[in-house]
């Protein structure tokens, strides 16, 4: 469904991606792991068209992701941002129903609100939250609202950017469970970037490790612990000693 071929991206002298090759089949949940500053978010933004690669090709549904096909791609896409990225000026329900209140998927206001309230319920939030503003919510609640917004228009593809960063372990577990349930329930194709190994084990069908601007290892999550790749072993066990320099 999504394929990256030899994708390069540099910011000045800093070469972040040095030839990334990665394929994400339809209906699969892929988690990309890697240390901070290894280019996971840049990779995600390249797929979304928010960052233009210097070289290489990104295919969506077999076709190059140019402006036209990317618009079609975004129309069936949802994303949970690391910080929630909720719109401060809109109440929670309008954040969730943003796509349903304008553009090609526009619905009547009452219907959009009903869908928003249902999606909020799906992520464990009460209807009373619908009329609050994002600033009135805790970090965990904001993540849930972000998740509700990501799934509001029943997307076929969902990206999760560091879904558990900044949350306590219990809330992280709740979010991981929700993500897994939603991905399975909707049959969506999911790409998650994280360095939280608990999330990896809870969410992933397949894992890819990004290091040095390339995919160092990729395989099913069940094979992750057994791989002899020293980079993966150092990362998943959180060792200071190994091929990955601990001070970057």
């Amino acid at each position: 469904m999504i394929e990256l071929r030899d994708v390069h991206k540099a910011f000045g002298p800093n070469h972040v991606l040095n030839g990334v090759n990665l394929a994400l089949p339809k209906g699969e949940s892929m988690v990309i792991i890697g240390g901070s500053g290894t280019g996971k978010s840049v990779l995600l933004k390249c797929v979304l068209g928010l960052v233009t690669p210097d070289k290489g090709e990104i295919l969506v549904g077999g076709a190059p992701a140019d402006k036209g096909s990317r618009d079609a791609f975004l129309a069936r896409f949802g994303m949970l941002f690391q910080g929630g990225a909720l719109f401060d000026s809109l109440p929670v329900w309008q954040n969730v129903a943003f796509r349903l209140l304008r553009g090609a998927q526009k619905r009547p206001k009452d219907e959009a609100r009903a869908i928003a309230v249902e999606k909020l319920r799906r992520v464990g939030l009460k209807p009373a939250v619908a009329d609050l503003f994002p600033a009135e919510l805790s970090g965990g609640m904001q993540k849930r609202v972000g998740l509700a917004r990501a799934i509001a228009a029943e997307p076929e593809i969902i990206f999760f950017d560091e879904p558990t960063t900044g949350l306590d372990p219990i809330m992280s577990g709740v979010i991981n469970e929700l993500i897994r349930e939603i991905v399975v329930e909707m049959g969506a194709t999911a790409m998650t970037i994280t360095h939280d190994m608990t999330s990896v084990r809870a969410i992933a069908d397949r894992v890819a490790m990004l290091h040095g601007g390339v995919i160092r290892w990729t395989g099913p999550v069940s094979e992750m612990d057994a791989t002899p790749d020293p980079y993966v072993q150092q990362f998943i066990h959180g060792r200071a000693e190994g091929p990955i320099e601990s001070v970057r």
Binding site: G49, L50, A75, A85, D88, F98, A104
Partner: peptide, 17 residues
């Protein structure tokens, strides 16, 4: 500017806006 640094602008793009 605040919308940009809190990724709200990116969120708009991903919401086809």
């Amino acid at each position: 500017g605040t919308m940009k640094v809190t990724e709200q602008i990116d969120a708009l793009t991903t919401l086809s806006t």
